[in-house]
Amino acid sequence: MQIAIRVPAARVKRLVVPLRQVPVLPLAILLLLVLTALLAPVLAPGSPTEQNLGKRLLPPAWVGGGSWDYPLGTDLFGRDILSRVIYGARISLMISMTAIGVGGLFGILVALPAGYLGGRVDMLLMRAVDVALSIPTILIGIVLAVTLGPSYEAVISVIVLFVWPRYARQVRGETLAIKQRDFIALAKIAGSSRARILIVHIFPNLVPTLLVLSSLQVGAAIIMEATLSFLGVGIPPPAPAWGVMVADGKDLVVSAWWVSLFPGIAILLTVLSLNLLGDWLRDRLDPKLRQV
């Protein structure tokens, strides 16, 4: 009797609870970002790349001399900053998602079996991770850009190089912990194959960690992309990457602050939201993950 009453109650609780503590603002900002990226052609008032040298460095609309044709003003080449920020969301998301996808997948594919099997494979992997973590990624980015010229592929490769060892280390650590749990021993006793244990028993238990890690790493990837672009070794201009835009305005901070400020705010809000979301997920899913 009692069992029958307890069970549905437990289910309802789990659904209701999180809603109260959900970080509404960060989630809203991220949702807005994704929508902006998807609907960029509809939302943007103008073209992100079309130059209008007659309208150079117009201030935002609410500042004296501004016009509502260019709500956030224009840059050195007379391009609409609002449109560029909107299209920039596309680039940031596309680059960071692709890089996280490739780097994360690579990290997981290497670390999962290594962590589970242990021994020599594991030792080799961890040394490789140590090496990868000590590579100055930005310098590699600069070298790549100088030798091959700046390109999307180069930026993505550099971020992948930055991200995969972080995934590998986290996944390996977590795999080591999960493999100590009794249900893994029981799966072996039941005759499950290694592949089955990895896929059915270990991977699903890694999902919370991966969610937390990914939300934080997407933020790091966006910063990395912006940094490379700012240094001129990232996304090749005239593409409206946020980092490129900040760089465009760096000599004009005093005279035309809006050129750098708005893409800067976009980076800040996005990364901050991702980090807040990551922290919340971490507390929510597993307080043990605090070291991520």
Partner: peptide, 11 residues
């Protein structure tokens, strides 16, 4: 095994 919290895969 001893610990019924560890011996069942929570997922």
């Amino acid at each position: 095994f001893q610990d019924p919290w560890s011996s069942l895969n929570p997922r």
